[in-house]
């Protein structure tokens, strides 16, 4: 019966550290820099056409990861959430790959 107490009986927040304002601000600066980068490549690098699409998606993914990791607190949460997000990502990318295999081989 002792085990009952230690389990999650009326739990509030399982304490995670408070993220500082400064960290949020630097995250935003990083995101804005990436945005400037991707726009610049697209507008001024039009001679690198296919390359620019690939880099645009790459930069977008980096931005998405930054948002998820810092703003969405994945950094401070249980690792479970990171894993689940990765699995969802893998699943979605597999959908993309499988359908593109189909359409590219027509």
């Amino acid at each position: 019966m002792n085990t009952i107490k230690q389990n999650h009986n009326d739990q509030g927040h399982e304490e995670h550290p408070i993220v500082s304002y400064r960290e949020h601000l630097s995250t935003l600066v990083a995101l804005l820099l990436l945005t400037v980068m991707t726009v610049a490549i697209s507008v001024f690098g039009s001679n690198l056409r296919t390359l620019s699409v690939a880099t645009a998606l790459l930069i977008a993914s980096v931005k998405a990861l930054v948002v998820a990791y810092y703003f969405m607190h994945l950094k401070y949460d249980k690792k479970l959430y990171t894993w689940l997000l990765l699995i969802v990502g893998v699943l979605f990318v597999s959908f993309l790959i499988l359908t593109s295999i189909e359409f590219l081989n027509r």
């Binding site: 499988l98 295999i101 189909e102 359409f103 590219l104 081989n105 027509r106």
Partner: peptide
């Protein structure tokens, strides 16, 4: 009318 490689994979 799916492409051949995709059919094999599936």
């Amino acid at each position: 009318g799916m492409s051949g490689p995709a059919r094999i994979i599936f």
